[in-house]
Amino acid sequence: MTVVFEKTKGLTDVQTHYCPGCTHGIVHRLVGEALEELGVLDKAIGVAPVGCAVLAYNYFNCDMHEAAHGRAPAVATGIKRVRPENFVFTYQGDGDLASIGTAEIVHVAHRGEKISTIFINNAIYGMTGGQMAPTTLIGQKATTAPLGRDEAHSGKPIKMSELLATIDGAKFVERVTVTTPGHVRKAKKAIKECFKLQIEGKGFGIVEVLSTCPTNWGLTPEESLRWLEENMIPYYPLGSFKRPKEDD
């Protein structure tokens, strides 16, 4: 008999506060597994965002820091510059990274800071109760867009991966999802590659993970996965947007 799957040492035994079926839990696990498998758990420092993942510092089994809303990349910059031997990552949602923290993430990429970012895009503000986010799809209902997002009023949803891929300092940009076991495995591969980039000192890397918010979408966890596949993936195409070039 062999154990083919057990809980990673990269996560603590604290039970998460996430709603049932929230894919934050899956991504937490992938990050914990990647840190453990790459052997950087002992020297990893994570920066938690504001949003649903604000309590992530309780769940990752490494040193963690909390940042003001959207400022995780700035805090991570400071940590990495003072302690370049440590592995530094941020874990941010779409309200944090794509709205209030847009300046920080753009400039951390622009400066080519040697940190890694995990970006959770669930097209809504989760923690505060389902308000419209910059990533909310056209027509998608939110508490601040009860008739659905109107393009004439709010513009189109922002595509952060495409945006960041245009910046020279960003060396690794990939969008993945976690709607099926196959996608979960691909997401883990992307997160590990992104983390390896930092270990090799090559520059900034980001993995955008399309995620669900069953509570605020008003769907069951399983329906949420299907809704994501049918509505989000056509607008936010999966795939690699940038890999380091040979001379990087």
Partner: peptide, 14 residues
Amino acid sequence: AMMCPDVVITVERY
């Protein structure tokens, strides 16, 4: 186990 958000599953094979 791949999909469990709360990592409550351990899998063995034999």
